[in-house]
Amino acid sequence: MGMHRKTITLTEQQNNWVKSQIESGHFGNDSEYIRDLIRKDQQAKEHLAILRQALVEGESSGESKPLDISAIKTAGRKRIDAAK
């Protein structure tokens, strides 16, 4: 994987935060910290896309039915009994 050098500008507060993360031992240098932030942002976006897709599928699955708590509890108890 090739590496690309980037130049970024941070506020004093942001720079101090990055330094504190490195000094605390969480990261070896600025680049490791920035790469970690990017990975976390990518993962968050992927999870959001999955959630949005699930919502679309749920909305297009048809009309909802009334929730029957009693039936849910009965089914759960049967599953517990069967696992014993």
Results as ranks from 00 to 15, higher is better:
Gln13Trp: 08
Gln14Cys: 06
Asn16Thr: 08
Trp17Glu: 15
Trp17Met: 13
Trp17His: 14
Val18Asn: 03
Val18Cys: 03
Ser20Met: 12
Ser20Tyr: 11
Ser20Leu: 08
Gln21Lys: 15
Gln21His: 14
Ile22Met: 03
Glu23Val: 10
Glu23Thr: 13
Glu23Phe: 14
Glu23Met: 08
His26Gln: 11
His26Met: 03
His26Asn: 10
Phe27His: 04
Gly28His: 04
Asn29Leu: 01
Asn29Trp: 02
Asn29Ile: 01
Asp30His: 13
Asp30Trp: 05
Asp30Arg: 13
Ser31Lys: 01
Glu32Asn: 08
Glu32Asp: 11
Glu32Trp: 03
Arg35Ser: 12
Leu37Val: 03
Leu37Phe: 01
Leu37Asn: 01
Leu37Asp: 00
Lys40Pro: 00
Lys40Val: 01
Asp41Pro: 00
Gln43Cys: 01
Gln43Asn: 04
Gln43Pro: 01
Gln43Phe: 06
Ala44Ile: 03
Lys45Gln: 09
Lys45Arg: 13
Glu46Asn: 14
His47Ala: 08
His47Trp: 09
His47Ile: 07
Leu48Ala: 14
Ala49His: 07
Ile50Leu: 14
Leu51Tyr: 11
Arg52Thr: 12
Arg52Cys: 04
Arg52Ala: 09
Ala54Ile: 05
Ala54Thr: 06
Leu55Tyr: 11
Leu55Glu: 12
Val56Tyr: 07
Gly58Trp: 05
Gly58Arg: 10
Gly58Thr: 04
Gly58Met: 07
Glu59Lys: 12
Glu59Pro: 00
Ser60Gly: 04
Ser60Leu: 09
Ser61Cys: 11
Ser61Lys: 11
Ser61Phe: 07
Ser61Met: 05
Gly62Val: 06
